[in-house]
Amino acid sequence: MKQSVFSIIENKPLTSNVYKMVLSGDTSEITKPGQFVNIKIDGTFLRRPISVCDYDENTLTLIYKVVGKGTEILSIMQSGELDILTGLGNGYDTEISGNHPVLMGGGVGVPPLYALAKKLISENKTVDVLLGFNTDDEVFYAKEFADLGCNVTVCIADNCRNSEYKNGFVTAYLPENYTHFYTCGPEPMLKAVYNATNTEGQLSFEERMGCGFGVCMGCSCKTITGYKRICKDGPVLLKSEIIF
């Protein structure tokens, strides 16, 4: 974990309430896709944990949904600096993916899968991506995943009108012969993915956090392998260790 100051390069809406923020700063502590950062925002007491969408040596891309006061303040920042803790959480493990992993993201759970897809593609794997959204106008990043070389299916839960999208939940479009799955999204979706899949997989969880670095015990959960802190031992847990 590292505390450092990042500069906002860009902050623009992707949909009516989802924003993409690009920052420059020291990303050396970010070692795996699926990790998160914890941002100090003037006007709120606690930091805001946000998953890392993409990163390189000196830029950090975050995609976040405006859900409350903190993210609302963040969404109107066009420039300036932010105090950010980086390198939080375990992240996704790509070594156990096999040669044909499937990635399933739901809503604002989609962003952390982007850096993951990038890594899996760089490892010459066949990557299927299922992106789930409630409605057509909530869709973002489908093209970006396709541009990486992934096979992308966009699934719309409610009233799908765009012919390029599929109707229904991501679990209805699981490919055949996938070797491993990765997912991030709201808990009901994680549960549905857990039940619909027949391989080992990695699920990224979300929880209200106090610190984000493992000391307050605010986000603990029970697993088959013992008590785990979502922020420090997670947010990614193996399917085989989860107790739903």
């Binding site: 709120t44 007491f45 606690l46 209200r208 307050c216 015990m217 605010g218 008590y227």
Partner: peptide, 18 residues
């Protein structure tokens, strides 16, 4: 869980001595 609730100048916790 939830064990944490934010306040304007602090937070409420109910961890329960984990």
């Amino acid at each position: 869980l939830p064990r944490i609730a934010e306040c304007p100048a602090g937070l409420i916790n109910s961890v329960g001595l984990q």
